[in-house]
Measured scan of single mutants.
Amino acid sequence: MTGIVKWFNADKGFGFITPDDGSKDVFVHFSAIQNDGYKSLDEGQKVSFTIESGAKGPAAGNVTSL
């Protein structure tokens, strides 16, 4: 699925993605970002991701920028 990064705190390594389908915002951890180098996201960035079952509920996985 796709969405827009609502916010991401690079110091803490997590944030939230707002899915394009209008569903509830999804937690994203830096370890789910699939790019080389520094793993961070920018507010407003368009991303593709999967929904994984995290310890505290749904979380984004396999996050790639579009």
Rank of each mutant, 00 (worst) to 15 (best):
D20K: 04
V28L: 07
D20M: 09
S31F: 05
S48I: 12
K39G: 07
K39Y: 08
V28P: 01
L66S: 10
T64V: 15
G37M: 09
S65W: 11
I17W: 00
D36V: 12
G3I: 01
V5E: 00
D21N: 11
T2A: 06
G13T: 02
I17V: 04
L41H: 01
T50M: 11
V5W: 02
N35A: 15
S48C: 12
A55L: 14
S31M: 09
Q45M: 14
Q34D: 10
D20N: 07
S23G: 13
Q45I: 08
G13C: 04
V26C: 06
V47Y: 02
A10F: 10
K39M: 09
G13A: 03
W7K: 04
A32N: 10
G61V: 15
I51D: 02
T50L: 10
D42T: 13
G22T: 04
K56A: 11
A10L: 09
F8L: 02
M1F: 14
Q45C: 05
F8S: 01
G15T: 01
G57W: 10
V28T: 03
G54K: 06
F16Y: 07
P58L: 12
F30I: 09
G13D: 01
I33A: 03
D21E: 06
G61R: 13
F14V: 06
K24Q: 13
S23T: 13
S31R: 08
A59M: 15
S65F: 15
F8P: 01
G54P: 04
G57K: 07
T2G: 05
K56D: 08
S65N: 10
S48H: 14
K46W: 12
A10M: 09
T18C: 11
D21H: 07
V63C: 03
A59L: 13
K24E: 13
T64Q: 14
D36E: 15
D11W: 13
D20E: 08
K39P: 10
A32P: 02
S65A: 13
K24N: 11
Q34R: 11
L66K: 06
G44A: 05
G37H: 10
N62A: 09
N9W: 12
F8E: 01
A10Y: 11
D42V: 15
D20S: 10
I33R: 02
F16A: 03
A59Y: 15
T18V: 13
L41R: 01
N62I: 08
S40I: 13
D25E: 11
G15A: 02
K12H: 09
K39Q: 11
S23N: 08
G22V: 03
S48Y: 12
Q34A: 13
G3Y: 00
H29V: 04
F16K: 04
L41Y: 03
D25H: 05
A32G: 08
D21M: 05
A55W: 12
K12M: 12
I51P: 04
V47M: 02
I33L: 10
K39T: 08
I51N: 04
V63H: 01
T64K: 10
A60M: 01
G61Q: 14
G13R: 05
S40R: 13
I33P: 02
A32R: 05
K24W: 07
F8H: 01
T18H: 07
G54H: 15
K46G: 07
I33F: 06
G44P: 01
D21Q: 06
I4A: 06
T64I: 14
S23K: 07
S53L: 15
P58Q: 10
G22Y: 06
G22L: 06
H29C: 05
V5S: 01
F16L: 04
V63K: 01
L66C: 11
T50H: 10
G13P: 00
V47C: 05
G44W: 04
D11L: 13
F14H: 06
N62Y: 09
K46P: 11
D36S: 11
H29D: 04
F27H: 02
D21V: 08
K39W: 08
G13W: 02
D42M: 14
S53D: 15
D36H: 12
G37I: 10
D36R: 06
P58R: 11
K46A: 12
S40A: 12
L41K: 01
K46E: 08
A60H: 01
T50V: 13
V47K: 00
N35D: 14
G54R: 06
S53H: 14
K12G: 05
E52M: 13
F49Q: 00
H29Y: 05
T64E: 10
S65L: 14
G37L: 10
V26A: 03
T64G: 06
D36M: 11
W7R: 03
F49D: 00
F27S: 02
K6Q: 05
V63G: 01
P19N: 04
G57N: 07
D25R: 04
G22A: 06
V47N: 00
F14I: 10
S40Q: 11
P19A: 04
D42R: 15
A59V: 15
P19F: 04
T18F: 06
E43K: 13
V63L: 05
S48W: 14
S40N: 09
F14P: 00
Y38T: 11
I51E: 03
G54E: 11
W7Q: 03
T2W: 06
V5C: 06
G37K: 09
W7T: 03
D25K: 04
I51Y: 10
S31H: 08
H29W: 04
T64F: 11
L41A: 02
K46H: 13
F30M: 11
Q45D: 12
G15H: 00
Q45S: 11
I51H: 05
K56E: 07
F49K: 00
D42N: 13
D20A: 09
K12F: 11
N9G: 05
Q34G: 08
P58C: 08
T18L: 12
N9M: 06
N9K: 10
H29S: 05
